[in-house]
Amino acid sequence: MILPSHGRYAYHPWPGRAAYAWPGGAKLAVYLGLNLEHFAFGEGLGAELAPGANGGGGPQPDVLNYAWRDYGNRVGAWRILELLDELALPATVLLNSAMYDYAPELLAAHRARGDEFAGHGRTNSERQSVLDEAAERQLIADSTAALLTAEGAAPRGWLSPWIAESTVTPDLLAEAGYRYTLNWCADDQPIWMATRAGPLLAIPYPQEVNDIPAIVARKDGAAQFADMIMDDFDERLRQVRDGVPQVMGIALHPYLIGQPYRLRALRRALAHVAAARDTVWITTAGGILDHVLGLPEGAVP
């Protein structure tokens, strides 16, 4: 029985894949995806601390949840910056372009660190998968233009707000000049996707080691999320002894992980990862793209 398919990539069983290496001979690449997001007041989408507007399904404005999310940009993100500096960790900033108007000082701080900026739509108050093709193309163009103007170079990577895609999103991204997407969590290695504008690299972005599904959806505690990061990391180190390289992403949102008690647990987890920097490759999503581009043809599925 053949089911409907996206047609973007073929099935490749894990056994028998090419045993290439990351820089320095490392078999495990680790990157941090730090989501910097801005939300419209009184309308649109957004994660909820308490379900329903005003905690009870009431009308907008939903002050409780808006203010909780805004805490991330005002306070939490700055605390995460201190932690990244403390542990000398790079980050891939997954950026709502509306942040340039709202919190330019925060972006300047990441720019000064040399962090990578990747496109993450205009705002997480909207979902691109509900747009027609022309409107979705415009959303990508608007976000891309803002990053190009501010950073002097177009972003190479994209994560859709809410990881929402239409059937043509990979095509539109490739046509707009993007080289990688973080939307597809189908593998532990980068894989090539087919688009009408040529290949697009899908770099693994986690839906498990990710504070939104862990903390908002599953209600995991701070210590549990930190243990999840460390256990994922340690198990991957064990697995890569077979020679097949892996990518581990850690997805963070400042309004969640930037809360003091969660940040304390995150410090423990990231220090555990950083202590192994001589045996793993701690990098950015863009760094993974660059390395893959230099591998022999066929090494990456």
Rank of each mutant, 00 (worst) to 15 (best):
G46I: 13
L32Q: 09
N35M: 08
R17K: 07
G42C: 12
P13C: 13
P15D: 11
G56L: 08
P59T: 10
Y9D: 14
G44Q: 01
L34R: 00
P13D: 09
G33C: 12
P23R: 06
L34K: 00
P15K: 08
L45G: 04
G55F: 06
F39E: 09
A53Q: 04
W22V: 06
P51N: 07
Q60V: 14
V63I: 13
P51E: 10
V63W: 12
G33I: 02
D70S: 11
G7N: 04
A21W: 04
Q60E: 13
H6S: 15
G25F: 13
R69L: 08
P61C: 12
P59I: 03
N65K: 07
A40G: 07
W68Q: 06
W22R: 00
K27C: 03
G55T: 08
W68Y: 13
Y11G: 04
A40S: 12
G7H: 07
G24V: 06
Y31K: 03
G52Y: 01
E43H: 13
G33K: 02
G25Q: 00
A67C: 13
Y71K: 02
A21R: 02
G57N: 02
G24I: 03
R17H: 06
A29G: 08
P15A: 09
N73T: 11
L36N: 04
G52F: 05
L36W: 05
V63S: 09
P23V: 01
P15N: 09
L45P: 03
G57W: 02
G44E: 06
S5E: 14
N35R: 01
R69M: 09
G55Q: 02
Y11P: 02
N73G: 11
L64W: 15
Y71F: 15
E48K: 01
F41D: 04
H12A: 15
G16W: 15
E37V: 15
G57S: 09
G55K: 01
G44P: 04
A50M: 05
D70K: 04
G16D: 13
G42N: 10
G56P: 02
W14K: 08
L28Y: 07
A19T: 15
G33L: 06
G25D: 04
H38P: 00
H6Q: 14
A53G: 12
V63F: 14
L64H: 15
N65W: 14
P13E: 05
Y31T: 03
Y9R: 12
K27F: 09
D70M: 07
R69E: 07
G55I: 09
F41K: 00
D70V: 05
W22Q: 02
G72I: 10
G56H: 07
L28A: 06
R69S: 04
G72Y: 07
A29H: 07
N35W: 03
G55D: 05
W68A: 15
G56Q: 06
Y11V: 12
L36Y: 07
L49D: 11
P61D: 12
G55E: 04
E48R: 01
G7A: 02
G25H: 01
E48P: 02
W14V: 15
N73P: 03
L45E: 07
Y11A: 08
Y31V: 04
A50H: 01
G16M: 13
F39Q: 00
G7Y: 12
G52N: 03
L49I: 08
N54M: 11
P15C: 05
A26D: 08
Y66D: 10
G7D: 05
H12V: 15
P59G: 11
G42Q: 10
